[in-house]
């Protein structure tokens, strides 16, 4: 596959390492009342969509950016690639 890196353009997916669902960005609050349940859901409860999937890829043999790649699991069509750091900030993550 080819991943169109937002900074470096098209790169062979062989240069990347796959992690999984981009929802791993949304790490729960450790001080929440039901923190254990929330962490359990965060870590183990995943959608397995037949279709569009947002997922985390690490450009390990490249610029070491984590990317959020929107990929269709049926066709492998990739419709969007973003820097994970930008996505994380947009989802309210900071310090």
């Amino acid at each position: 596959m080819i991943i169109n890196h937002p900074l470096l353009g098209p790169r062979d997916s062989q240069e990347f390492t796959y992690l999984g669902d981009a929802s791993l960005i949304d790490r729960p609050d450790w001080q929440a009342e039901d923190a254990v349940d929330r962490f359990y859901d965060y870590l183990y409860e995943r959608e397995n969509p037949a279709g569009e999937h947002r997922e985390l890829w690490f450009h390990e043999q490249g610029d070491r950016s984590w990317l959020v790649v929107t990929r269709n699991t049926l066709t492998h069509e990739i419709t969007n690639v973003e820097l994970a750091r930008d996505v994380a900030r947009a989802r309210g993550r900071g310090k």
Binding site: T17, L19, L24, I25, R27, L56, F58, E60, R64, S65, W66, L83, A84, R85, V87, A88, R89, R93, G94, K95
Partner: peptide, 19 residues
Amino acid sequence: AVSVYRHMEFCRQCLWPDL
């Protein structure tokens, strides 16, 4: 060594991007 480095980059970029 490799997987820990990858994990640290994940934490740095995806979990706490403003640290």
